[in-house]
């Protein structure tokens, strides 16, 4: 498992001001798998996720210690440009956040920002990404319509398509289904299953059922610490730690 890790963290500590949000987190995310991070609210799982594409850089009071490596290079090293990093490590947010542009412009935004100008190529990217995100059939006739007119589930799949359009290596998903209804959730979950063949997916979720359904590996976090990590089946059926057992059996959280 270690040999194929895309991202590894080594003893990560993180503070917001004086508030320690992560304590000594060591975890690795294997290539072309889905890893889910679970835990009660405020346990630091979203914070950990946002370290992996350096979105935490945008918060001025945030301070981070410890090592995070991406394919073996230090993610916070001087050689890494967070802008380039985020192209490799894409992110899908809790609430769907399409730009107030057309569906087409939403998808082509990333590629165009990265210098692709050829109309043919762009059209190809649009179709490919929308197909991968299982949205093509629903929107192919109205690509120039505003993305704001789509349903919540469609918007979220559009956001996934938008992320795929810049051809990332890792996709981070921060509770991608928490604002969606069960049917839309089911669509996103089956989509994740397909994405796994090409991408490494890391998902933060509140729903233990979702973690159990979709992920290969699971990490359980509590109060900023990673309590236990391992294959999903093992975590849910035979956890090592008492705390994990209590959480997944619903005794707290």
């Amino acid at each position: 498992m270690d040999t194929s890790a895309v991202i590894e963290t080594q003893g990560v500590n993180l503070w917001y001001g004086d508030n320690q949000a992560l304590t000594n987190v060591t975890i690795s995310f294997p290539e072309k798998t889905i890893t889910s991070l679970i835990g009660p609210s405020g346990c630091g799982k979203s914070t950990l996720l946002r370290c992996l594409n350096r979105m935490n850089d945008l918060i001025p009071s945030c301070r981070i210690e410890g090592g995070i490596s991406y394919h073996g290079t230090d993610l916070y090293g001087p050689a890494i440009d967070p802008v380039h990093l985020r192209k490799q490590v894409g992110m899908v947010f809790q609430r769907p956040n399409p730009f107030p542009k057309s569906i087409y412009d939403n998808i082509t935004y990333g590629p165009r920002m990265h210098g692709i100008r050829d109309r043919k190529t762009l059209e190809q990217i649009v179709e490919e990404s929308l197909r991968k995100a299982a949205l093509w059939d629903e929107v192919k006739d109205r690509l120039s319509a505003s993305a704001m007119g789509l349903s919540g589930g469609q918007q979220q799949r559009l956001c996934i398509a938008r992320t795929l359009a810049v051809n990332p290596d890792v996709i981070l998903m921060d509770e991608p289904c928490s604002a969606l209804d069960p049917i839309a959730t089911a669509k996103i979950e089956s989509l994740m299953e397909e994405l796994k063949s090409q991408y490494t997916v890391i998902i933060v979720t509140h729903s233990m059922q979702q973690a159990a359904r979709v992920s290969d590996y699971t990490g359980f976090m509590y109060m900023g610490e990673l309590i236990e990590t391992g294959e999903t089946a093992k975590i849910f059926e035979n956890p090592e730690k008492e705390l994990t057992n209590n959480y997944i059996t619903g005794r707290f959280g």
Binding site: K87, G90, G110
Partner: peptide, 10 residues
Amino acid sequence: YREGSLALGT
């Protein structure tokens, strides 16, 4: 919007 755009590596 800001986060969505930055997360695409812009």
